[in-house]
Computed example of a mutant assay.
Amino acid sequence: MTSPTGWTWRLLDASGAELDPADLDVEVPVEDAQAEAESWLGEHWRTLLERGAASATLLRGDAVVYGPMGLSAS
């Protein structure tokens, strides 16, 4: 569960189903600021893609801020 005001990512597979980050052997942090969360994704998107995530949705608490957005570079 995310904190009420923390920023984090929901990871999705190619069909749009939510993935458990533990199944991808990653820990998605809950950040204090949107820019920190976006920076984390910018640093880790390739690894997430390699491990089966196809897209990500930015959340603030439980509210969708934007997404899903594809992780593929193409």
Rank of each mutant, 00 (worst) to 15 (best):
L49V: 00
A63G: 05
V30A: 14
W45K: 10
S55F: 05
A54K: 01
T47F: 01
G52T: 11
P68W: 05
L49P: 02
G67C: 06
E38G: 02
W45M: 04
G61D: 04
A35W: 05
T47I: 09
L58M: 06
S39K: 10
W45Y: 09
D62N: 12
T57E: 15
A54L: 06
D62C: 06
L59Q: 12
T57N: 03
A33M: 08
A35Q: 12
D32N: 15
L58A: 12
P68E: 07
Q34D: 12
E50L: 13
R60Y: 06
G61P: 11
G67D: 07
A54P: 07
A53G: 05
L41Q: 01
G61E: 09
V64A: 13
L71I: 04
L59M: 15
V64C: 09
R60P: 02
D32I: 11
A33R: 15
A53Y: 02
A37V: 11
G61K: 06
S55L: 08
W45F: 14
G67Q: 02
G42W: 07
A54D: 14
A35G: 01
L48R: 02
A56S: 08
L58D: 00
L58C: 07
L71D: 03
H44G: 10
L48V: 05
G42R: 01
A35M: 03
L71M: 07
R46H: 12
A63Y: 07
A56Y: 05
A56G: 04
M69F: 00
R60K: 14
L49A: 05
T57H: 00
R51I: 06
Q34W: 10
L41R: 04
G42Q: 05
L58F: 09
S39N: 14
E43Y: 09
L71Q: 03
A37I: 04
Q34Y: 13
A56L: 08
A54N: 12
E43G: 10
E38D: 11
A33N: 10
G42T: 08
L41D: 08
E36A: 15
L48S: 03
T57A: 11
E38P: 01
S55I: 03
G67T: 01
A54G: 09
S55K: 01
G52N: 11
V64E: 15
L59V: 08
A35H: 12
L49K: 04
V65C: 11
W40G: 00
L48G: 09
L41I: 01
E43W: 12
L58T: 03
R51V: 06
W40M: 08
D32T: 10
G52L: 10
L49E: 02
T57D: 01
E38C: 06
H44P: 01
A35R: 08
H44D: 03
A54E: 14
V30Q: 14
E31G: 01
L71H: 03
S55C: 00
Y66M: 07
A37F: 06
D62I: 12
L41T: 02
A63R: 15
A53W: 04
R60W: 06
T57R: 13
G42I: 03
W40L: 00
A53T: 13
S39C: 08
S55V: 00
G52D: 06
E43S: 13
T57M: 11
V64M: 14
L59H: 11
V30T: 13
L48F: 08
Q34L: 12
W40Y: 09
E36G: 14
A63S: 15
D32E: 14
E31F: 13
Q34K: 15
E38F: 10
